[in-house]
């Protein structure tokens, strides 16, 4: 499989624009459930209406149009015609999407100088080389509020699932309304200090779960949270939890909890899909 870089850039630009307004990750989703009453129901209606208005009036779901992250799975036999590398192509797509889509540019060039890059680049790219000849790219637009309340910890093997579930609970309790709940939480256990956060995002991006036992303990503990939608009183602080377990060292048990706000903005491009070729 081979693609022209301009074709890919345009596809990714369209994917960013779609993900900002009507993300694949929230198709068919509703914040309302049958147990809600009063104020919580009203808040859930605001969030459902937010999804509807964004789609109908082509407005960004959230004014924080996020940091762009790409998770790339590139088959070893997949090639580009032309000389540009993938990061260059993806950053061009970000630049054009944020300009043409009137999306807010939120990236600063230096953590202390805080000068805006004015085009929302750079995007952060995670690359994985896979077997075969296909190209799959997940894009995630993630706001600052929920990223700021995510957390990681180097735990010890003896702490087990109970310990991890306690850490997840503490992280979400501390986050409260700050990161715009109901949260979608990605949890990774294993790997190394640097990789565990990326794995937690992968769990979130793919909405995968490979440890039902941990998920059950976590969901049970989360019933004790004392807030609901957007941190106000209620019963719906967490929309869903995804768990990924990863091989690790005999002495280690890294844990990461990535929280995403109610605007879960993820999209997927894949050459396995005929429309993406």
């Amino acid at each position: 499989m081979s693609l022209h870089p301009l074709f890919l850039k345009n596809k990714i630009k369209e994917l960013i624009l779609e993900t900002s307004v009507n993300p694949q990750s929230l198709h068919g989703f509703s914040f309302i459930n049958s147990s809600m009453t009063g104020k919580e129901l009203k808040l859930a209606e605001v969030l459902d209406n937010n999804l509807k208005i964004a789609k109908e009036t082509n407005r960004p779901l959230c004014q924080d149009c996020g940091t762009v992250q790409f998770f790339v799975e590139k088959g070893v036999h997949f090639t580009f015609s032309g000389g540009a590398g993938l990061e260059t192509i993806l950053n061009s797509a970000v630049k054009e999407a944020y300009e043409e889509g009137f999306l807010r540019k939120s990236m600063v060039i230096h953590p202390f100088e805080r000068k805006n890059t004015c085009d929302n680049t750079p995007a952060f790219v995670h690359m994985k080389e896979t077997d075969g000849a296909e190209l799959t790219i997940y894009v995630m637009l993630k706001g600052g509020g929920s990223e700021n309340v995510s957390n990681m910890k180097m735990m010890t093997p003896a702490e087990g699932r109970e310990g991890v579930a306690d850490f997840v609970f503490e992280t979400i309790k501390k986050a409260g309304g700050k990161g715009c709940p109901p949260y979608f939480a990605g949890i990774a256990v294993g790997g190394t200090f640097d990789t565990v956060g990326t794995f937690a995002k992968e769990a979130l991006i793919k909405k995968e779960n490979d440890d039902d036992e941990l998920k059950t303990i976590v969901l049970d503990k989360l019933k004790d949270l004392d807030f609901g939608i957007l941190g106000f009183d209620g019963s719906f602080p967490v929309a869903d939890v995804y768990v990924k377990t990863v091989p690790t060292h005999i002495a280690m048990m890294p844990v990461a909890v990535v929280l995403n706000c109610h605007s879960l903005r993820i999209g997927k491009f894949s050459t396995e899909n005929k429309n993406d070729r």
């Binding site: 605001v46 937010n50 208005i53 964004a54 009036t57 004014q63 924080d64 706001g143 509020g145």
Partner: peptide, 28 residues
């Protein structure tokens, strides 16, 4: 007053008029 975080499109639709008042160099 607490407004509803992340309901950007919803609030966007409530805005009838907008003008830059001070510090246009700061963008958003």
């Amino acid at each position: 007053l607490s407004a509803f975080g992340g309901a950007g499109a919803y609030y966007g639709k409530t805005v009838e008029k907008m003008e830059t008042f001070l510090f246009p160099e700061l963008g958003p």
